[in-house]
């Protein structure tokens, strides 16, 4: 295996830093028809809630310049089916799984976090406190430092695997939220979730999305992600999995230079189902051109040069 792409994070020894982002890759099965999932660093599986959820009414997606809006609404088959069917189906791949966990109240988050780590291939949890598309829970836990602190503490008590908390960019100041999650004992952060947006259909004069608003993703939000990762990496030592509009190897390296320790790729999977293997393939040459010996070396440099 190529050592220059290896990265090591709490619970996650990744052969490369490329992780399909939650919600953009289902539970892996669909993309497994396109390429061998074992080539990936990890997979962030679709958000899992205690009970099955249908999600929002359709239309659930809309296009925007260099981006898209989505308001899926955390549709998933619920914890039991994820544990009995979805996660076992991924065991045949040489792949640590990051389970994205969502809920509408603290008890839900705690219940899912307590159990999902029992799956042998789940090596970490991504705590989704930043989904902008559900009425209860989701983003409500990620915009108030006190609430974020309490929830982090509560799930840390019950989890068997490291917890990465997913931050929302939909806040006036992300710093106190990140600090609260750090103080709550989280093992890492993932950022950023989508930005709240809206589009209107000129013919109907109404929002395109049935949910009216949706989360903006894609290259349109990349500079915001870079800025926020940079900002948060200055005030915490927690490792950050960076995401927001990654389409190229250059985007991956830019995230690392902002302070990320691995990256997640979301919207790009819809444009090109082979984007993750292509990024893994393209990284070594681009690193050589830029004089980057290894990603671990780059991480170390970025950490030493903070402030």
């Amino acid at each position: 295996m190529n050592n220059q792409l290896k990265v090591s994070l709490p619970g996650l020894e990744l052969k490369n830093p490329i992780i399909p982002a939650s919600g953009c890759f289902g539970f892996g099965a669909e993309y497994a028809k396109y390429f061998d999932l074992s080539c990936l660093g990890s997979i962030m599986i679709k958000a899992t809630t205690l009970e099955p959820r249908f999600g929002n009414a359709t239309p659930r997606v809309a296009e925007t310049p260099s981006g898209m809006l989505n308001a899926i609404g955390l549709q998933n088959p619920g914890l039991d089916v994820v544990m009995s069917e979805k996660l076992p189906a991924l065991e045949k791949y040489d792949l640590p799984i990051i389970a994205n966990v969502a809920g509408s109240c603290e008890e839900d988050y705690v219940a899912v976090c307590a159990k999902i780590g029992d799956a042998p291939n789940v090596k970490a949890i991504e705590l989704n406190i930043s989904c902008p598309n559900v009425k209860h829970g989701g983003i409500a836990f990620g915009t108030d430092p006190d609430v974020a602190y309490e929830l982090t503490k509560a799930v840390m008590k019950v989890t068997k695997v490291p917890i990465y908390v997913k931050l929302s960019p939909n806040v006036t100041n992300i710093v106190p939220i990140a600090q609260a999650i750090d103080a709550g004992g989280a093992d890492g952060l993932t950022m950023i979730n989508t930005l709240l947006g809206m589009r209107i259909d000129l013919k109907t004069r109404k929002p395109i999305l049935a949910n009216q608003t949706g989360g903006l993703s894609g290259p349109a939000i990349k500079p915001i992600a870079i800025r926020l990762i940079h900002q948060v990496s200055q005030i915490t030592d927690l490792p950050i999995i960076g995401m927001g509009g990654i389409y190229t190897a250059d985007d991956v390296l830019e995230m690392f230079m902002a302070g990320a320790s691995a990256v997640a790729v979301g919207t790009a999977n819809f444009t090109d189902p082979y984007i993750c293997p292509k990024l893994i393939e393209a990284l070594p040459q681009r690193m050589e051109e830029l004089g980057i010996e290894s990603l671990e070396q780059l991480r170390k440099e970025v950490r030493e040069n903070r402030r």
């Binding site: 669909e30 249908f54 359709t58 549709q75």
Partner: peptide, 22 residues
């Protein structure tokens, strides 16, 4: 339907079932 992935991963294009009371 409006789709994103087109291959079943993103759940953008779902519809309800007639015989599903839940």
């Amino acid at each position: 339907a409006r789709m994103a992935c087109g291959m079943g991963a993103c759940y953008a294009c779902v519809c309800h079932l007639q015989k599903d009371e839940t």
